[in-house]
Design a protein around this nucleic acid. Sequence first.
DNA 1: CCCGGCCATTGATGTAGGTCAAGGACGCCT
DNA 2: AGGCGTCCTTGACCTACATCAATGGCCGGG
Lengths: 251, 251
Amino acid sequence: MSLFEIRKMSAHLPDPAPRTGGPGSPCSACNVRHLTLCAALDDREVADMSAIVSSVELGPGEPLFDEAEPAKHVFNVTAGAIKIYKLLPDGRRQMTGFLFPGDFLGLANDETYAYSAEAVTFSTLCRFPRKLLEPLLERYPRMERRLLGMASHELAVAQEQMLLLGRKTAREKVASFLLMLSRRAVQRGQKDNPISVPMSRNDIGDFLGLTTETVSRTFTQLKQGGAIALQSNGKVELSDRAALEVISEGA
Amino acid sequence: MSLFEIRKMSAHLPDPAPRTGGPGSPCSACNVRHLTLCAALDDREVADMSAIVSSVELGPGEPLFDEAEPAKHVFNVTAGAIKIYKLLPDGRRQMTGFLFPGDFLGLANDETYAYSAEAVTFSTLCRFPRKLLEPLLERYPRMERRLLGMASHELAVAQEQMLLLGRKTAREKVASFLLMLSRRAVQRGQKDNPISVPMSRNDIGDFLGLTTETVSRTFTQLKQGGAIALQSNGKVELSDRAALEVISEGA
DNA sequence: CCCGGCCATTGATGTAGGTCAAGGACGCCT
DNA sequence: AGGCGTCCTTGACCTACATCAATGGCCGGG
């Protein structure tokens, strides 16, 4: 598949919208506001940053980095969708997250990445050398505060996901997933209905601890129950959000 | 159960040992080194801290705080074991972690706790008003750096747990759990074999996304396979660690 | 010393979701 | 236009784990 074609395919994706509220100024380096690392900086500081960040573009399915590989960079998603996952030796896979514009990845405690990352759709990212992160945080304490806030938010999200994986039924998992996608679309300033579901059934299954087949069956079951409607273009309409809310917390 | 009795019961628990290596000095306020918030401080700073921290003691099963309750404090575990969990409306429970001396809890993005916390054994904690955290971080940047490191470590642990919950079999889950307990015992400077398993089968089940019965059956299965031996005092001997390692990653 | 509650274990049975298999829709590539 | 690869869907069947139920050990209290 040519890069040109991929770009064309992705052309319908809305641009990341400017966020409303919150402190900080737009980041010219990565062209995303507020949810990003750079949102803690003012214009002059952003200009400094521009000198050391670079841009990355990935087509669907292209890897960004692999688990256990030396963690040379941190990234900020600026367009598209990224999946991050861990593997067992026999190939079983667990998605640990889907990342959208404004999301941050690559923060690692030790010298290697704790998970693999790969593009779902055509994506662009803002790349920053990890070596330079520590002095940067030293220099801009607001940035560190922001990073801590993001990490602690991620932690809460991870705990919610553990509840889902360990204790929810397939039906509850899928309903929760759709609502999560919808909420995150709103956060990014996109419309929340119908929602864009760019990842495959298999990816969704690996995120929810289910198989492709079970995800597919559950989608049709929710469709037949009138809670959702499947559109042809990879979009899902949440016809009855209240019903989904009820289902997601235990029918 | 009288408090005196509880203390007596817990008397055999080894004291948190000083850690070797790493920066920082002992924290007289919470009496734990290095793995704690205060480990980033020098002696004078620790003395400042002592004025605003207080101590909490909990007997087995006593709650520390509940999910969604206003997050007034952050805590540092100094002795015992704490379980943190989330509930579904119908009572299904997912443990999101077990915390031991040196572990930190209560960091919340918004104004309420994201999970409930409760003592497993008789425990003591060092308590700190959350309102005072932000100015403190302002004042001691090393502390913030440490906190960020801890949050990012927690995040990696959470992702590993997602892999376990979503993709491992009961056998793999239990083997992974025992190895995790063992590794954390080493980190705290305790002996790693036999390991202390203070929580009930039910608690373990809720941590691993299994039922009490399945946990119990899996323990006996591992015992019969010679990988472990169950001692009477709530301790488990890891007779064949290599076998457990193999099992934990997919028999 | 005996009683009662809690927890662990074990057995018998049920079931949600996995596995295996077969089409079908769609889009790309020639 | 036709062929092919990928993904989605659906059906038939299977199994790992849940559920339901009974028993026994341990410990604390009377």
